[in-house]
């Protein structure tokens, strides 16, 4: 046998094993039971199934909460990033301490602390009830991560840009706002989009804080349908929720990959 024939034989046998496994699985599996439990016809029915609440309440709230957490985290992150690059040392220490502290904690701990711990400890309830408190916690953690992303973006803008602006007589503030930040934001669009995807998934943690029916996000709504509604007692609503998450997250991760390829090609 020549080397080529041997390689061909290995390839063919690999396909044969794969096909055998697939056929065995198809023959052994009880498809009607699987369908009943994971894609229950009553649950996935367009008119009377779970879709209405999953999309109308769950998905809408998930997107809304993600947008709020992202906007808040971005604003907080920008302040922290500028503090970290400040010529005034105490600002740098404060920002560094904040970032290291909140990056080192599980987001869930901060969220539970905001919604349960704060009212107990200080008698103060954050605005927006449980969901508002959870979102503030999410913003506090997201801000710490985004601060590091933004700082890296700002530092990636060549020093000559600042020098050119300052040599034209522009003040430090105007230089940052009009010359450095617009370029820094361009650099950090891909990592910030990644951050957005992470936040979409992190809003599922709000499920653990509990909320009124109309305020529930996708995971909470799906969890409700496990024990009530047309497909109660099956995992159908979770599969549906998973699909809805993927419909948002997959295009975004593809977008990030595309942006990164484009950025690598762009020659400055």
């Amino acid at each position: 046998m020549t080397r080529r024939e041997r390689a061909l034989l290995v390839q063919v046998s690999l396909y044969v094993v794969l096909a055998a496994a697939a056929i065995t699985l198809a023959l052994v599996a009880d498809w009607s039971t699987i369908r009943q439990n994971f894609w229950n016809p009553d649950g996935v029915d367009w008119a009377d199934g779970n879709w209405g609440d999953l999309i109308g309440t769950g998905l809408v709230n998930t997107v809304k909460y993600t947008a709020i957490a992202f906007a808040g985290g971005l604003a907080l992150g920008l302040v922290l990033a500028l503090m970290r690059l400040s010529p005034v040392a105490p600002y740098r220490w404060l920002a560094t301490a904040y970032i290291e502290f909140f990056r080192g904690l599980p987001a869930l701990v901060v969220m539970i602390f905001m919604s349960f711990g704060l009212p107990i400890a200080f008698g103060w309830t954050p605005p927006g009830g449980t969901i508002g408190a959870g979102l503030i916690g999410l913003i506090m953690v997201a801000g710490a991560y985004m601060a590091e992303t933004l700082r890296a973006g700002i530092q990636a803008v060549p020093k000559g840009q600042t020098e050119a602006a300052r040599s034209l007589g522009m003040r430090p503030g105007a230089t940052t706002v009009k010359v450095v930040l617009p370029q820094a934001f361009r650099i950090v669009i891909p990592p910030l989009t990644n951050e957005f995807v992470l936040l979409i998934k992190d809003t599922a943690l709000l499920f653990l804080l509990g909320a009124a029916a109309s305020e529930r996000e996708l995971t909470s709504v799906a969890r409700d349908f496990l024990s009530s509604g047309p497909s109660s007692g099956t995992a159908t609503s979770l599969i549906q929720a998973a699909l809805l998450y993927l419909i948002i997250t997959l295009p975004l991760t593809q977008l990030v990959a595309w942006l990164e390829r484009r950025q690598r090609k762009a020659v400055r």
Binding site: G160, A164, S167, L168, G169, V179, Q183
Partner: peptide
Amino acid sequence: RSRIGMVFQQFNLFPHLSVLKNLTLA
């Protein structure tokens, strides 16, 4: 500084702005 023009070896134009905006910003 606004009365002292400076030209750099690496040009240091603002890449996110058009030529005209580069000249009008400051």
